[in-house]
């Protein structure tokens, strides 16, 4: 069933992809025999066929993940999004320390080791990557101190 649902969703995307290739995409002049539209038409149509084949003959029956696991993963994705949201405004050190603490705590670490780990990931990561390796990382609100 889950195969069918997924293949159905991909089918919708692939159909939209093909429809756009047949309607919207086109060059004002013909530069080459195929133009920008033929390739998407070919691969999009093949993708539609593959999805149809999967819907007719699905393979996996059920989705082997409990509600609890899915909830854990949803929390994980939420944490990642929060990290992405805070990454630039707060800067690498603070956002990384907060994220590392939250995630390692969530995965079962105790407060003290998690805190130690988080601070060393944030500060150590910044020193290593920005100061030694000269990679581009955001300084954020700590800008005037760094």
């Amino acid at each position: 069933m889950i195969d069918r649902i997924f293949a159905g969703a991909v089918l919708l995307v692939a159909l939209a992809y093909v429809v756009l290739a047949f309607t919207v995409i086109g060059a004002p002049f013909q530069y080459d025999p195929l133009g920008p539209e033929s390739w998407p038409r070919i691969i999009g149509s093949l993708a539609v066929l593959c999805c149809a084949a999967l819907i007719i003959r699905p393979e996996i029956e059920d989705f082997s993940a409990s509600k609890q696991t899915l909830l854990r993963l949803a929390i994980l994705v939420g944490m990642l999004c929060a990290y992405a949201f805070l990454f630039k405004p707060l800067g690498f050190i603070i956002s990384t320390t907060m994220f590392s603490f939250a995630l390692s705590k969530f995965l079962g670490a105790r407060v003290k080791p998690a805190g130690l780990f988080a601070v060393s990931a944030g500060v150590g990561g910044y020193v290593l990557c920005k100061m030694i390796l000269d990679l581009n990382l955001p300084s954020g609100i700590l800008k005037q101190f760094l």
């Binding site: 990642l80 590392s100 995630l103 390692s104 995965l107 988080a118």
Partner: peptide
């Protein structure tokens, strides 16, 4: 629990 945040 430490490896996972590090990958992210």
């Amino acid at each position: 629990k430490y490896l996972t945040p590090l990958i992210a």
